[in-house]
């Protein structure tokens, strides 16, 4: 039940997957929204604070997720899947993981570029680990932006691939994660 089997994901993997899915959607919306808010909007401070806080949660989650894969196994590819499909899936998942790793790092480096910590829901602070560096907010901000939008396209591709498995290939790939 906790661990994955050859034909379905375990509970831990599912919680990590769907928790991250929710977080990524929320972070994308909040991140975009934060850049659109006007100075006098009552949410001008709350939305970026929430984005940073949830970003730290996502960073913790991706670390747990990577650690979990040291323990757990992945279900096998669908029996009918061709070699290129298996490779494409692996590449897509790899890129998604890369985004999930680099997005919180770039965001954290941007917010801490002046040496200030990141507050998490006002409960505690993650200190700036690197010394303040003038201009770091620019290149990390750029990276964060492209990873954010690139990652969003990858998520759409991921969803489209899952639907393709379900409705075109008619295999059990999607059911491994929800069934």
């Amino acid at each position: 039940m906790w661990m994955s089997t050859p034909d379905r994901y375990g509970l831990v993997a599912r919680l990590l997957h769907w928790g991250m899915a929710l977080l990524l959607v929320a972070l994308f919306v909040l991140g975009w929204w934060a850049t659109e808010l006007s100075y006098y909007d009552p949410l001008y401070r709350i939305i970026p604070d929430l984005h940073r806080s949830l970003g730290i949660v996502a960073a913790v989650l991706i670390v747990l997720r990577l650690l979990w894969w040291l323990v757990d196994r992945r279900p096998d590819p669908a029996p009918g899947a061709s070699r290129w499909m298996v490779l494409a899936a692996r590449a897509g998942h790899g890129l998604l993981y890369l985004c999930m790793i680099l997005l919180p790092i770039s965001g954290y480096l941007m917010s801490t570029a002046d040496g200030r910590p990141v507050s998490v829901f006002g409960l505690f602070e993650v200190p700036a680990l690197l010394p303040a560096s003038s201009g770091r907010e620019e290149w990390t901000g750029m990276l964060h932006y492209y990873l954010g939008y690139g990652g969003a396209w990858l998520v759409l591709l991921h969803v489209a691939a899952a639907l393709k498995h379900q409705f075109i290939d008619r295999d059990d790939t999607l059911r491994k994660m929800i069934g």
Binding site: P48, M110, A113, D114, E137, E138
Partner: peptide, 16 residues
């Protein structure tokens, strides 16, 4: 103009 410095990285980014 990119050398603007208001002692807050995220604000400076916004100002640029």
């Amino acid at each position: 103009t990119a050398s603007i410095d208001s002692n807050h990285a995220e604000r400076d980014k916004h100002l640029r």
